Each structure stands twice: as structure tokens, then as C-alpha cells.
Amino acid sequence: MGLLSKSRKASGDVIYNNEVKPQLVAKDGNIHIVMINSFSKLVNQNFGVESKYTEQIGSVINDLQQDGYEIVDIKFDSLKGQGITGTAEGFHTLIMYK
């Protein structure tokens, strides 16, 4: 695992602990949601895995499960032409959990 990959996973952990975790509803058997906004990596012009998104969101999902939440569904959409340079893709990830 490369340095950049470790950094991205660590940033996912930080987002989980500082932003996601305080928004989580106590486990009550009901389905709840959390929406996460993110961006693609700077150079995202080729066919392949979007490693930045995969590593950051993957880290959040892992942390949710490690805290005992069940992932019910994940919904996703993207917007082109986002970010300061207008060249990134913006991602919205809706995580449904119990």
C-alpha cells in the first residue's frame, strides 16, 4: 500500500470520526441515512478504479461496520466540472444504515 493510499484511508477515518460519527443515529432497528460529499482525484481521465473515492468512502464504510452499524444500501451520483479548477467530479454518496 502506497503512501498516498494510506493518506486517503486516514482522511476517510478523520471524516468518519469528526463529521459522520456525530451525525449517526443510535441503533434502534430503523434505517437512517448519512450523505457524504467528495471529489475525484485530480487526474481522472482514464478507465480504471477511482482510487481516491474508493479508499476514502471505503474507510468510512469500514468504520461504520466496525462500530456495529449494518449497511443497508449505498446510493451514488456524480457531477462533472466541480472543484476549484472545474475539472474534478463531485460525488454524492448516500449511505443507508441500521
Rank of each mutant, 00 (worst) to 15 (best):
G58R: 03
M96F: 06
V60D: 00
K6Q: 09
K9Y: 02
I15C: 11
S78P: 02
I61S: 03
I15H: 11
G68W: 14
F39T: 12
Y97P: 04
V20D: 00
K41V: 04
F76Q: 04
Y97C: 07
I61F: 06
Q66C: 01
T87Y: 08
N18S: 13
I36C: 05
T85R: 08
L4K: 15
S51R: 02
D77N: 12
M96R: 08
V34L: 07
I31Q: 10
S78L: 03
L79S: 08
A26Q: 09
V72I: 12
E50M: 10
H32D: 02
G83K: 06
L3R: 10
Q45E: 07
F47I: 09
K41D: 14
S59H: 06
N44Y: 11
S51C: 05
N30R: 12
V49L: 14
E50T: 06
G90I: 01
I36D: 01
I95D: 02
A88Q: 10
V34C: 08
I57R: 00
A10Q: 12
I61W: 00
S51A: 13
S11M: 01
G90R: 02
E89N: 13
A88F: 14
S5G: 07
K41N: 08
G2N: 15
K75V: 01
L94D: 06
V49T: 11
G81K: 06
S40T: 15
Q66T: 01
A88I: 02
F47P: 04
K21D: 00
I57G: 03
Q56D: 12
E70N: 04
G81R: 06
K27G: 12
T93F: 02
S38Y: 03
G81Y: 02
V34D: 10
Q45M: 09
D28C: 11
E89H: 07
G2D: 13
I31A: 13
K98L: 09
L42G: 08
F91N: 04
I31G: 08
G68F: 10
V20F: 09
Q65M: 14
K80L: 06
D67N: 08
M1A: 09
L24V: 09
S7G: 08
A10N: 15
F91A: 08
V43G: 07
Q56A: 07
S11Y: 01
I74Y: 00
E70A: 11
D63K: 13
I74Q: 08
L79C: 07
V14I: 13
V60M: 06
I15L: 11
K9F: 00
I57P: 00
Q23H: 09
D77I: 01
K21R: 15
Q56W: 03
A10T: 13
L94H: 02
I33F: 05
F76R: 09
I95R: 03
